[in-house]
Amino acid sequence: MHTLSNIASGIRTLFGTVPGMNGGSALGDNSFWQRKMLTHFTRMDMNGDNFVSRDDFKSLVKSLANKAKLSDQRAFLMQRLVIQLWEDFWCCGEDKGFEYKVPVEEFLGLVINLLKLSDSKALLEEPLSLLFGVIDLDGNGVVNIREWTIYNEAIGVSENDAVHSFEVCFDSKTEVTKEDFIAVGQAFFTVTDERHTSRHLWGPLV
């Protein structure tokens, strides 16, 4: 079981402290930011083993294909997207082997190191763009409430919480563009203000 206190301690030991966005407290000591990152990690940990692996991403696509009754071609394309997301973002472009598993401390350290860079928000665009491609189940370039709900249910968010996050994060739009999603996703990873609506992106915080 992960707790915020032992995660924060591990982050400070491995990566030091990083100033928060917009003059906020250091991310390694910001419990709200840590909860957001732990929430995202938990949603991607499909098998609940406290690690995120290539198999979790493949399981995600399998679940989506079943729930949305995707064609084999569409499922194959989504499989390619998630593998690219796994290799380029979660593995930092390194060949770590098919069996590699990312623990939560490493994931938070990865994000912290990314946020140290001056162009961090721009660097978040690629993984968020890939993830949008997975959520866009029919591949038409926009995400509607049905697709959003199916994706969120696949990662363990209830239908009611998925509907709430869609309405709150995207200003009650009926369809969300890739640009809309990237903007909210960037805020989720960088903002430390607890009042910001991006906190709801992946359902209730853990």
Rank of each mutant, 00 (worst) to 15 (best):
E194Y: 03
Q79R: 12
D45H: 12
L85R: 09
N22W: 05
R43L: 01
F89D: 02
P127S: 14
K116W: 02
A162G: 13
K67T: 07
Q84A: 09
V61C: 00
N66C: 02
T192P: 01
L131H: 12
V82D: 07
N50W: 05
S165I: 02
T149R: 13
C91F: 04
W202I: 05
P127H: 15
S9Q: 14
L205A: 07
L137R: 11
A68D: 15
K62D: 15
N22Y: 06
T149L: 01
E125F: 00
G93S: 07
K178A: 05
P103Q: 14
V104D: 04
S120I: 02
E99D: 15
G23W: 03
T197P: 09
V134K: 12
E125V: 00
M78R: 12
G139N: 08
E126I: 03
L123E: 09
V206E: 12
G23E: 13
L77H: 11
L14Y: 09
T192A: 07
D95Q: 08
A68E: 15
N66A: 10
G28D: 12
E106H: 05
A65F: 01
V82L: 05
I135D: 11
G10R: 15
D55L: 10
R195L: 03
H200V: 01
V134D: 07
K69Y: 05
L81E: 06
M37Y: 05
P103R: 14
I7S: 08
W33G: 00
V61W: 00
H40F: 05
T177V: 01
R35L: 01
N47D: 15
Q84S: 11
L117E: 08
F181W: 10
Y100Q: 09
V104H: 03
F51M: 06
E159F: 03
E194C: 04
L64V: 07
T197L: 04
V176S: 07
